[in-house]
Design a protein around this nucleic acid. Sequence first.
DNA 1: GGTGAAAAACTCGATCG
DNA 2: CGATCGAGTTTTTCACC
Lengths: 145, 145
Amino acid sequence: MDTIDEAIIRCVMRNARSTYAEIGQAAGLSAPAAKRRLDRLVASGAIRGFTALVDPQALAWHTEAFVEVYCTGNPTPAQLRQALEDIPEVVEACTVSGAADAVLHMLARDITHLELAIQRVRATAPVDRTESVIVLSRLLNRPRL
Amino acid sequence: MDTIDEAIIRCVMRNARSTYAEIGQAAGLSAPAAKRRLDRLVASGAIRGFTALVDPQALAWHTEAFVEVYCTGNPTPAQLRQALEDIPEVVEACTVSGAADAVLHMLARDITHLELAIQRVRATAPVDRTESVIVLSRLLNRPRL
DNA sequence: GGTGAAAAACTCGATCG
DNA sequence: CGATCGAGTTTTTCACC
């Protein structure tokens, strides 16, 4: 992981569909060298994948929320992960410091759909209590870095 | 926006570097037709862009936090957005329901760097009080949908 | 939306700084 | 480690139906 790798990462974060020639130009490398570097970054896990940034509105998924989860007992992160990964409305989940055990970032078509999804979370994971904050408007959404 | 467009979106969300042939196969289209559809989705804004999912650990940005922001006065979302967009450590920001005015998702190299970034937020935006929750571990990070 | 052909880009060696 | 070269393959990108 050096400045060349960082340049490659910046390039594919800005546009994941860049050609190897473009990636190489951004990093000061030839196209084959850029491919080798990028392949290595993916293989090593530094780059987990490539995805499209979709406007949720376009998919009619209007409702977004942050949900603080308070658990019963002491579930391990692995247990929590397993319980949450089958609920597609949970797009992000972290264990956190403070009173709550985890914070979930959820996406749903509407409030009814969100409520249903939260009920599924409470049924699947060892959850004592949840506290939801509905997103009113999205101010910023930057790709990491 | 029909089921074909949705199939295309699912495909490029799973892998933004799919070839048009792969995208077409996922949607039941020929490669040129898939390209026309994808170009249209990008032009219409339904797809905002393509990015890489990077492991923050690999970039040595170990520290992640959710920061609830309580504002003084009644800043408009546009004012908040303007104040936050120059702070690169803020990767995501939403106005929310409840007591807090906004929730920030922040990324930093370490706790010291995070503290500095939060101070910048407090100096730049009309912030009365912040409440931070440090991320301990990332359980899930799915591309939207 | 499909087809087909031209142009561009990628892939994989080997070879040399 | 990376550049370059070259041949074979795949992908992209058109015009046209």
